[in-house]
Nucleic acid binder design. Structure first.
Lengths: 133, 133
DNA sequence: CTTGACCTTCCCATGAGCGGAAGGCCTAAA
DNA sequence: TTTAGGCCTTCCGCTCATGGGAAGGTCAAG
């Protein structure tokens, strides 16, 4: 398979696939003409990567997950630990965003949103307090 | 005021303050020795920026907000529109994260997390489907 | 033989800064 | 007076995960 094929089948842009090779996540063969020649196993890895990235795992997380994916004797607990850390990360991000949402939503509600210059949003932004403490 | 003072009072690192000058968000005076000399109005703007950034506004959003902040005749509706766009952005990010959370949480629940190699998380990641469609 | 779709590498850009080097300035203490 | 140290300046490179585009090689079809 050439890069366009794996791009279409994995859903990852060709640029991204080349980048993943650069940083050592995959290691496709090369044809005589210098083109990358992807095996089914490369495609599997790329699909795996696309999915893990879409779930918010960082590239370094993905590197670890791939290592576990390839290690047929690893304990499922190892994988679970990574996934749980990722879940905690997601939960933390959600609460941060919810705190922003609450603050900003209060400001928007307080603003009449008409043609007059008086604006509680700017007044609220003027105050030195932050949403996170 | 020198940069350290405004840094302490605004809560922004000195590096960030210099960066904000670079990109034209603030425009402090200079002393004879070349040091930046901040007025109270600069400090106000920096505090405003710190607060807006902590609420997730991008630098370009902040540029627009600052322009509105400085324009004493602007309509509050202009500010409200920006803030509402930001709220929508936050809401979108929250739902994306919640979708990730749901998918990953299912996978984690399905995984025994013991010493055996069988792992539903990796199997779930292997599948080509993504969390967002 | 040419066209057009591929492929390659290389370099530059993003956002929003951080880290550090090299060097100037200022104040206080020895 | 010198020295120490703390502050300030600019400049350069780094981050992360790509994206854009140039310059050039390859391949299949018409």
């Amino acid at each position: 398979m050439n890069i366009k094929d794996v791009s279409l089948r994995s859903g990852l842009p060709a640029k991204t696939i080349r980048y993943y090779e650069d940083i050592g996540l995959i290691n496709p063969l090369r044809s005589a003409n210098g083109y990358r020649s992807f095996r089914e196993s490369d495609l599997h890895k790329l699909s795996f990567l696309a999915r893990a990235r879409s779930l918010g795992f960082s590239i370094e997380d993905c590197r670890r997950l791939l290592a576990l994916y390839e290690d047929r004797s690893r304990a499922s607990a190892d994988v679970k630990a990574l996934a749980q850390a990722q879940l905690e990360d997601i939960a933390r991000k959600i609460s941060e965003l919810q705190a922003m949402q609450a603050t900003l939503s209060d400001l928007v509600t307080a603003c009449s949103g008409d043609a007059r210059p008086d604006c509680p949003i700017l007044k609220g932004l003027e105050r030195g307090t932050t949403c996170c403490g």
